[in-house]
Design a protein around this nucleic acid. Structure first.
Lengths: 205, 205
DNA sequence: TATTATACTGTTCATACTATCAGTATCGGA
DNA sequence: TCCGATACTGATAGTATGAACAGTATAATA
């Protein structure tokens, strides 16, 4: 689809993004040249052509500032994400019977695009600011790094905890003094996804 | 602050918005004239000057397509909500200099439609699950009921606290033992808005 | 009643901007 | 070793665009 960019092309693309968010308009060739330190406007033109050829921008010919960012993290199309409610024991998270509804979550609301939303049950993570009833944005993943907040499955129960990895052991750490850490042999741990964000609607409950 | 627009000015503003979201660039005077059906580019110029005077757009003089939509221009738009960062003492929340960026927040993400998003500073509300750096969704309002979490202004500082109303006194209650409740005579309390929801991006900081 | 804001048409002019041509230099692959 | 892609400098031509000026007409306001 869109090929990889060279370091310089990436810098030019970033330069356009910055310009866009600062002034609300795309830069001219001259402005790109100035910001990038080029002596010639044509250096900018060359880069723009390369970026268009690789599918990152669209150039509107003959129009000043006619640079349109494509696939931009800022305004992608709105996407409905499923809300996973109570997960029945033994059923995969994605199972239809677990789905509550869908919620529109635009591209770019979270830096990491979540795969689904999960409604939190219980207060085991209140010290991490995750409350009963909150929707957490989860990116599906089978692996996670130590320190990340994960959605994991223990004894067919889906739970949200902070993951700590030692040598052969994994510890699922609650963020609430009333709960005990859970130790699991590393090979028995099933990661469902990684916590990337949170949505709370105060008027909901 | 920003005055009301005439019907025609509103149409021109909408026209700019549409142009922006369609092509990624602001329209030229000629393009506005064409879309609006003007015979003269100057009609567009006049409207732009009016819109700038009323604080809805910023015109970058001598630059082509130099029309920047300001926060107030987004206040009527469907998806994009302004993110208010650090609020300078003495300045209204809506002030341009407080605007960080805009974030797409779809209708229906929160039951109560927020007016803007406010980036939380400090940890005075951690026990309410509101953390430093979180974005809180705020519905603009001059009044609030006891028990609601509000955005209030005390001594020109904007703060987020739980509101408790007694007879003639208002108490702004932090959700952190390290902070003291703030008592204010009810008539000195300035409510800016009501907390209706929260968005946290874990990868953000 | 005079004045000001709104809402335009029409023209001219300077300049902001894009497109294109002509080069130079470096690098990796066929 | 030749070729194409990358990464520029530098200059010119022509168009796109904004600004300014001169008008007209209407509705609201003081």
């Amino acid at each position: 689809m869109s090929s990889t960019l060279t370091a310089r092309q990436q810098q030019v693309l970033d330069c356009i993004r910055e310009s866009q968010s600062e002034t609300g308009m795309a830069p001219t060739r001259a402005e790109i040249a100035e910001r990038m330190g080029f002596q010639s406007k044509n250096a900018a033109s060359d880069h723009l052509r390369a970026l268009e050829r690789k599918g990152y921008i669209k150039l509107h010919g003959d129009r000043s500032r006619g640079i349109q960012l494509l696939n931009s993290a800022f305004w992608g199309s709105e996407d409905e994400l499923p809300v996973v409610g109570k997960v029945a024991a033994g059923s995969p998270i994605e199972a239809v019977e677990n789905l509550e509804r869908t919620v529109p979550v635009p591209q770019g609301l979270f830096r990491q695009r979540p795969t689904y939303l999960l409604r939190v049950q219980g207060d085991s993570m209140i010290d991490a600011g995750i409350f009963d009833g909150d929707l957490i944005a989860v990116r599906k993943s089978q692996t996670a790094r130590s320190g990340e907040i994960v959605v994991a499955r223990i004894d067919d129960e889906v739970t949200v905890k902070t993951l700590k990895l030692n040598r052969n052991n994994a510890t699922l750490l609650p963020a609430n003094e009333a709960y005990e850490p859970i130790r699991v042999p590393a090979d028995e741990l099933i990661i469902e996804g990684i916590f990337v964000g949170l949505i709370r609607d105060t008027t909901a409950h």
